[in-house]
Design a protein around this nucleic acid. Structure first.
Length: 925
RNA sequence: GGGUGGUUAGCUCAGCUGGGAGAGCGACGGCCUUACAAGCCGUAGGUCACAGGUUCGAUCCCUGUACCACCCACCA
C-alpha cells in the first residue's frame, strides 16, 4: 500500500466494477423480499444538458448515503435516476447556439429546431450523469428515465387528458406573466420580484370639462396609453367631488372616468391611481369590478401596438416610456418626479422584465387538487424534515392560484388538444382518438395546439411515471410510495407540492413519506455561489484538483465586463494561490455530510475538506498498520484472549454504532459523521492502535493475547469500514477488499455487506473504566512533560502514591501499556510511609502520579503549574459548595442531581487539598 | 406588510425536550517515536447578541429589542 492515500488511483476502477456487477439494482422481487422491506428514493431529475454544481453534489451525497445505508441493511433498495428536459433552460441554450450561428429558431422552423435540441441533448446529455458517477452515486442506471422519453410522455398525455375530462384542466383568457423575450407565458413561481431603483412620476390628468385636474402617480408612464380610469378612495375627502367625472386622457383622444374603489391607498402617492386593466394585475381586478374595458397596447414583443396613437406604434416599451415622459413634460403635465424603489418582476431564466399580458392559456385547477395534498401533510402521511417547512407548504397551498401550464415554447410535451376551424377544442391521446371519439371525418381539418406544457407538469408525475404508470407495473407495487424525497427548499412549490397533488389524484397515495429539505450550499463567506460573482466551486474540481490558471479561466470565461473579470481574477488568486488540491470523492462527500445539520444553509470552506482528506489518509494508514501486523498471521483459530484494550475498543464500537444509527434515523448526517470520525481517529487510532503495540511487539506476550489483539484490530477496522461505507464508499471498499479475508468476511463487495448493528452485550463497563484510568495517568504524565518542557525521548521514572488496592491491581494489569504510551522507564508503588522524592504531580482520582523533579524540572515552573490547577479546582469548589449550600437547591433539585454535585464537590476538594499540600512542599524548599 | 431561520472560541459549526459549554480548522510550544509530518504530544481562547420573565438553577423555556439571511404578498 502507498504511504499516502491516492483517491484517483482507485475511484474510477471501483465505480466501474460496482456498476458492471449490477450492485446498484434492487435486490429481489416483492415475492422474495416482501413489500415492506422496500426502500426507494426518486432522484430530483437534473437538467439533462446541465452539469453538476455544489448543490447537486450535496444532495446526491445525502441520497447516496441513505441508499447505501438501507441497501446494506437489507432493504430492497431502488434509487431511481433520470433527467429533466427543462423546457425553458434547454430551449434558451440551443437558441443561443443558433444565434451564434447567425440563424434562429424561427428560421429553422419547429421540426428542425426540435431536432437540433435532441442533437444537443445527445451531445451534452451525458455530462451530468457522468459527474454523478464521479460522486460515487449508486442509482440503478439501468432504469434511467428522461422526462421526454416515450413512457413518460405517455404518462403526461394521459394525465392531461384525464384532468381535462374531469374539468380540472381548462382553457382561459386572463392576464398572465408574459416574457417578451421568450414569447411565452410563465407561472407566478417563475417570476422573481427584485427591488430596483425607479421613479415615481406625478402627472396632471385634466378633467374633460376643463374644470381642473387630478394628479396621478405612476412608476410606468408608458402604460397610460392603456388607462381606462382613474381611481380614488371612496372616503377620500379630497377627491369625493371628482368621482363620476371624466378625464381627458393626455396624448390620446380618449376620455376615461374617475371611479371610487377602496383598494386605493389614500396615503400613497397622490391618492389617485391610473387604472390600466390590460397591463397590471391589480388594475385588471379593479377593471372587472367596475366593468372597465380592456385595452391592450403591447405586442408580444412588448412594443406598442396599433391601439396606441400613431407616433408610438412599434416602439419598445422602454423607449416609449422615455418618449411619453418627454411628451407629457412638453404638455406641462409633469408635476414632479421622485426616486422610488419598486419591485420589478423578472423572469427567473431570462431576467427579462415580465409584462402582465392578456392571453389565452391552459390552467390546472390547483385549488381542488390542493385540498387532499394539504390533508396528507396535516395527518402525517407526509412528514417534512425539518418540520417547520410544513408551515411554508401550508401557507402556499392554502392560498394557491390556478397553475398556468401552457408555454409558447417548442421544446417540451406538446399539449394534446386539437382545434377545428371553429376553434372547438378536442382533447385526446392522439388526433385519431379525437376524431373517433367526436365523429370527426377526414374532411374536417384539425390542428394541434402549438403550445407545450410547463416542465414541472411532467416532473410532478415523476414518482409514478418513472415506475411505468399508467400501466400496472410490479415496480409501482413495490416501490411506490417512495420513502423519502431529498430536495432543496427552493423547489417546494415548484415541485414538491405539485408532486403531492398529482400523485394523490392519480395514485390515491402519497408520492413519498418524508421530505428531507436541505439548505443551500454557499461559499465560505456565506455568499450564494454564482457565475457573476465568480465564486463558484465545481465539485469535480474539488475531487480532481485544478491549477490556478484554469480555475481563473473557468471563473471568468464569458464575462462581459473586463472590470469584473479582473476582480474575480484577483479574488480567486487570493483565495486559491496554488489552485485547488485533489481531495478525492470521499473527502468531498464527508465534508458535505459533516456540514449537513438540518435547517440551515451551509458555508463550504475548503479548509474543511482538507481536514477530511487528512481523515482519509488516517484511515488509509491505520489500515496499513493493521495489515502489517496481521497479514502474515493465521487469525482463524478460536484460541485467543481479549485484553482490556480489546474489550474497550469493542465496547466503544458498539456505542458508536448506536450513535450513528440514531443520527441517521433523524437525518443528522453531521452527527453521524462526527461520531465515526471521533471513534476512528481519537479512539481507534490515537489509543487502540497504540495500545496494541506493546502486545504485538512484546517478546514475552502470550500467543492467545496476541491473537486476540490481531483479531480485534482487524475486526474493528472491518466493522468501522462498513459503518463508514455509506459516507465514504471508495476508500472503504478498497481497504475492505484487502482485509476481508483476515476479518473472516465473505462477499464480493462491502456495498452489500450488512451494516453494523450494535450489540450491547459487548459493551464492557469494566474495560471502559480501566482504559479511562489508563488514559488519565498517561495524559497526566504527558501534561507534565509538555508543560515542563521535558523531552519526549526522556524515559521517566515515576511513582504512584496514595493508590488504592484497585489502583494496584490496575497497575499490575497495565504496566506495559503505561510504560509504552507515556515513555516511562519504571513505576514505583509507594506504600503509606514510604519516602517520596520531590516531584511534579498529576492526579488520577485519589492516587497521585509523581514525576521526580531532580535534574528535570524547575521548582518555580512546577509551582506555577500547580497554582494554575489550584485556581481551577478552587473555582470549582467554590461554585459547587455555593450551590450545595443553597437550601432551595438541595430541597428542590432531584436527588440524583444533588448526589452528583456532591460527588463532584468531594472530588474537587480532595484534588484541591492534594495540590495545596504539594505546593506547600515545593514552597518549603 | 406577513412569515421562517440565525446570532455560542479568531473562523465554520455541535450542544441530545433546563444541572453553569464542545469539535474541526486556525494560533502557540515541543517532537522526523519503525501506520500516518495530510502525522504525534501538549497549551491557550467564550458575560453563549441584548433586556426582561419563569425556575432552587437558563446557552436551552417564555416575552420583547437589535442585527443578518431567506420566503411570501396587489401598494400605483
Amino acid at each position: 500500500m502507498d504511504k499516502t492515500y491516492q483517491p484517483q488511483a482507485i475511484e474510477s476502477r471501483l465505480y466501474q466494477q460496482w456498476e458492471e456487477n449490477g450492485y446498484f439494482a434492487p435486490a429481489g422481487s416483492a415475492a422474495t423480499r416482501g413489500e415492506d422491506s422496500a426502500y426507494c428514493i426518486m432522484i430530483p431529475p437534473p437538467n439533462v444538458t446541465g452539469s453538476l454544481h455544489m448543490g447537486h453534489g450535496f444532495q446526491e451525497t445525502i441520497m447516496d448515503t441513505l441508499i447505501r445505508y438501507h441497501r446494506m441493511q437489507g432493504y430492497n433498495t431502488l434509487w431511481q435516476p433520470g433527467t429533466d428536459h427543462a423546457g425553458i433552460a434547454t430551449q434558451m441554450v440551443v437558441e443561443r447556439q443558433l444565434e451564434a450561428a447567425s440563424t434562429s429558431r424561427k428560421e429553422l422552423g419547429r421540426d428542425k429546431f426540435i431536432e437540433k435540441v435532441w442533437e444537443w441533448k445527445e451531445q451534452s446529455g451525458g455530462t451530468i450523469t457522468r459527474q454523478l458517477r464521479r460522486m460515487g452515486a449508486s442509482p440503478d442506471w439501468s432504469r434511467e428515465r428522461f422526462t421526454m422519453d416515450d413512457g413518460l410522455s405517455n404518462a403526461v398525455q394521459e394525465v392531461f387528458v384525464r384532468l381535462y375530462e374531469e374539468a380540472l384542466i381548462y382553457r382561459g383568457t386572463r392576464l398572465v406573466n408574459w416574457d417578451p423575450k421568450l414569447h411565452t407565458a410563465v407561472s407566478d413561481l417563475e417570476v422573481e420580484q427584485e427591488e430596483e431603483n425607479g421613479s415615481l412620476w406625478h402627472y396632471k390628468y385634466p378633467l374633460a370639462d376643463g374644470s381642473g385636474h387630478l394628479t396621478v402617480a405612476t412608476t410606468r408612464p408608458e402604460t397610460m396609453l392603456g388607462d381606462m380610469a382613474v381611481a380614488v378612495h371612496p372616503d377620500d375627502e379630497r377627491y369625493k367631488s371628482f368621482i363620476g367625472k371624466d378625464i381627458a386622457l393626455p396624448l390620446t383622444e380618449r376620455t376615461i372616468p374617475v371611479i371610487a374603489d377602496d383598494y386605493v391607498d389614500m396615503e400613497f402617492g397622490t391618492g389617485c391611481v391610473k387604472i390600466t386593466p390590460a397591463h397590471d394585475f391589480n388594475d385588471y381586478e379593479m377593471g372587472q369590478r367596475h366593468n372597465l374595458p380592456l385595452m391592450n397596447i403591447f405586442t408580444e414583443d412588448a412594443t406598442l401596438n396599433d391601439n396606441a396613437p400613431q407616433q408610438y406604434r412599434g416602439m419598445d416599451r422602454f423607449a416609449a416610456r422615455k418618449q411619453i415622459v418627454k411628451d407629457l413634460e412638453a404638455l406641462d403635465l409633469l408635476e414632479k418626479v421622485e426616486p422610488h424603489k419598486l419591485k420589478v418582476p423578472r423572469g427567473d431564466r431570462t431576467k427579462e422584465v415580465i409584462e402582465p399580458f392578456l392571453t389565452e392559456q391552459w390552467y390546472v385547477d390547483a385549488k381542488t387538487l390542493a385540498k387532499p395534498a394539504i390533508a396528507a401533510v396535516e395527518n402525517g402521511d407526509i412528514n417534512f424534515v425539518p418540520k417547520q417547512w410544513e408551515n411554508t407548504y401550508f401557507a402556499w397551498m392554502r392560498d394557491i392560484q390556478d397553475w398556468c401550464i401552457s408555454r409558447q415554447l417548442w421544446w417540451g410535451h406538446r399539449i394534446p388538444a386539437w382545434y377545428d376551424s371553429e376553434n372547438t377544442i378536442y382533447v385526446g391521446r392522439s388526433e385519431a382518438e379525437v376524431r373517433e371519439k367526436n365523429n370527426l371525418g377526414a374532411d374536417i381539418e384539425l390542428r394541434q395546439d402549438e403550445d407545450v406544457l410547463d416542465t414541472w407538469f411532467s416532473s410532478a408525475l415523476w414518482t409514478f411515471s418513472t415506475l411505468g404508470w399508467p400501466d400496472d407495473t410490479p415496480e409501482q407495487k413495490i416501490f411506490h410510495p417512495s420513502s423519502v424525497l431529498v430536495t432543496g427548499f427552493d423547489i417546494i412549490f415548484f415541485w414538491v407540492a405539485r408532486m403531492i397533488m398529482m400523485t394523490l389524484h392519480f395514485k390515491q397515495e402519497v408520492p413519498f413519506h418524508t421530505v428531507y429539505v436541505h439548505g443551500l450550499v454557499r461559499d465560505s463567506h456565506g455568499q450564494k455561489m454564482s457565475k457573476s460573482k465568480g465564486n463558484v466551486l465545481d465539485p469535480i474540481d474539488l475531487i480532481d484538483g485544478i491549477e490556478l490558471d484554469p480555475l481563473i479561466e473557468k471563473r471568468t470565461s464569458g464575462m462581459m465586463q473586463p472590470q469584473q473579470k479582473e476582480k474575480i481574477t484577483k479574488q480567486t488568486k487570493k483565495e486559491f494561490p496554488d489552485g485547488i488540491n485533489a481531495y478525492g470523492t470521499d473527502a468531498l462527500r464527508f465534508t458535505y455530510l459533516s456540514l449537513a445539520s438540518t435547517g440551515r444553509d451551509i458555508k463550504f470552506d475548503v479548509g474543511r475538506i482538507e481536514g477530511f482528506r487528512n481523515f482519509c489518509n488516517k484511515i488509509w494508514n491505520a489500515a496499513r498498520y493493521v495489515l502489517m501486523n496481521s497479514e502474515e498471521f493465521d487469525l482463524s483459530g478460536d484460541n485467543y484472549e481479549l485484553s482490556l484494550a480489546d474489550r474497550w475498543i469493542i465496547s466503544r464500537l458498539q456505542e458508536t454504532e448506536t450513535a450513528v444509527a440514531d443520527a441517521v434515523a433523524q437525518y443528522r448526517f453531521d452527527l453521524a459523521s462526527q461520531a465515526i470520525y471521533e471513534f476512528f481517529w481519537n479512539e481507534y487510532c490515537d489509543w487502540y492502535l497504540e495500545l496494541s503495540k506493546p502486545v504485538l511487539w512484546a517478546e514475552d506476550a502470550s500467543p492467545e493475547l496476541q491473537l486476540g489483539t490481531r483479531r480485534t484490530l482487524v475486526r474493528v477496522l472491518e466493522a468501522a469500514l462498513r459503518l463508514l461505507h455509506p459516507m465514504m464508499p471508495f476508500i472503504t471498499e478498497e481497504i475492505w477488499q484487502r482485509i476481508k479475508g483476515l476479518a473472516g468476511a465473505e462477499g464480493e463487495t462491502i456495498m452489500l455487506q450488512a451494516f453494523p448493528c450494535a450489540d450491547n452485550s459487548k459493551v464492557d463497563a469494566e474495560a471502559i473504566d480501566a482504559i479511562e484510568w489508563l488514559k488519565r495517568i498517561i495524559i497526566g504524565v504527558r501534561n507534565i512533560r509538555g508543560e515542563m518542557d521535558i523531552s519526549p525521548k526522556k524515559h521517566l521514572a515515576v511513582f504512584f502514591k496514595n493508590g488504592s488496592p484497585e489502583d494496584q491491581s490496575r497497575l499490575d494489569d497495565n504496566e506495559p501499556f503505561l510504560k509504552k504510551l507515556a515513555n516511562i522507564e519504571s513505576i514505583t508503588w509507594l506504600n503509606e510511609g514510604d519516602e517520596a522524592p520531590m516531584s511534579a504531580t498529576a492526579l488520577a482520582g485519589e492516587m497521585e502520579v509523581l514525576v521526580p523533579m531532580a535534574g528535570l524540572i524547575d521548582t518555580e515552573a512546577e509551582k506555577a503549574r500547580i497554582n494554575k490547577e489550584i485556581d481551577k479546582q478552587g473555582k470549582e469548589v467554590k461554585r459547587l459548595s455555593g450551590k450545595l449550600g443553597n437550601e432551595k437547591f438541595v430541597s428542590n433539585a432531584p436527588t440524583d442531581v444533588v448526589e452528583k454535585e456532591k460527588a463532584k464537590l468531594a472530588e474537587a476538594e480532595s484534588a484541591l487539598q492534594k495540590l495545596q499540600e504539594q505546593l506547600d512542599k515545593l514552597s518549603a524548599l
